[in-house]
Design a protein around this nucleic acid. Structure first.
Length: 261
DNA sequence: ACTTACGTAAACAGGT
DNA sequence: CACCTGTTTACGTAAG
């Protein structure tokens, strides 16, 4: 597991842990996405949930049934056989169906957005750190959209992890990202039009055919930060992909593009 | 009112 | 045999 314990001794423990707002599908998705190989056995999913959502530490065992129920029923997940040669543990490994990944991301993004807005926690690190709902710091492996900051993150496995020895999150820094570099990427083959509101300050780049990109690298993920209203189609993403030298993560970005961005 | 998504419980089979 | 994993069915609830 790469996420830190949510109940660090230095952090206040909520008096009563609320049930996480995420559906079991989202929980499973986060667990699998957070695994190094993007695949987990059922037991691994249990452990991730328990480690990152303290609510389930004390919850009755029924939620495990729900996890299995979701895995079986949802088309978003599929089962793959363990490598028999190094078979350790029983059961299969579960992974995300690529075609359903954008939808899962969207659900997660909406959930995050909803609870950010309605709980007055917008831009509060606590939300991403899980202090209020026992949530994990998902920002490193998830796409997080924040309508107020007008940015969203596309996360993709980095070809060269910066720090594999200590793949944990910085405490009190939900997005411990530092810019690696910034640059402008020409988008020539794509019609890039941003609907402008009169009230919103016009982005000088919006008509220039450029999209401003900020590259961040954190642990095993590399991020592209682009304007929030940017509509990325498949072609755009392919270009961004080349420029970010993230060809190895083709699946991730293309899948995101397939989600309607 | 209806549909859909989701959560929960339970039964069952098969494997370890 | 106990436990775990995976599948399936059924039912209740909330939201759209």
């Amino acid at each position: 597991m790469t996420l830190p314990p949510q109940l660090e001794s230095s952090q206040p423990v909520p008096p009563a842990l609320s049930k996480p707002p995420y559906s079991f599908s989202s929980l499973i998705f986060m667990a699998i996405e957070d695994s190094p190989d993007k695949r987990l056995p059922v037991k691994g999913i249990y452990e991730w949930i328990v480690n990152n959502f303290p609510y389930y530490r004390t919850a009755s065992g029924g939620w495990r049934n729900s996890v299995r129920h979701n895995l079986s029923l949802s088309k978003s997940f599929h089962r793959i056989q363990r490598d028999k040669s190094q078979s350790v543990g029983k059961g299969s490994l579960w992974c995300i169906c690529p075609e359903y990944r954008p939808a899962l991301l969207e659900v997660l993004r909406k959930t995050h957005s909803y609870y950010s807005t309605n709980s007055n926690l917008t831009n509060k690190p606590a939300l991403l750190e899980g202090q209020d709902y026992g949530l994990p710091a998902v920002c490193d492996s998830m796409e997080i959209s924040d309508p107020l900051s007008h940015t969203f993150l596309l996360s993709t496995p980095s070809p060269q992890p910066l720090n594999t020895d200590n793949p944990t999150f910085v405490e009190n820094a939900p997005c411990p990202l530092t810019p690696v570099h910034e640059e402008l990427v020409t988008i020539e083959s794509v019609e890039y039009q941003q609907e402008e509101s009169e009230e919103i300050e016009k982005d000088p780049l919006s008509d220039s055919g450029y999209i401003e990109l900020h590259y961040y690298q954190s642990q095993q993920y590399q991020y592209l930060v682009v304007p929030g209203e940017t509509e990325l189609d498949l072609e755009t993403v392919e270009i961004l992909q080349l420029d970010s030298e993230a060809q190895e993560a083709a699946g991730s970005l293309l899948d995101l593009a397939g989600g309607g961005y």
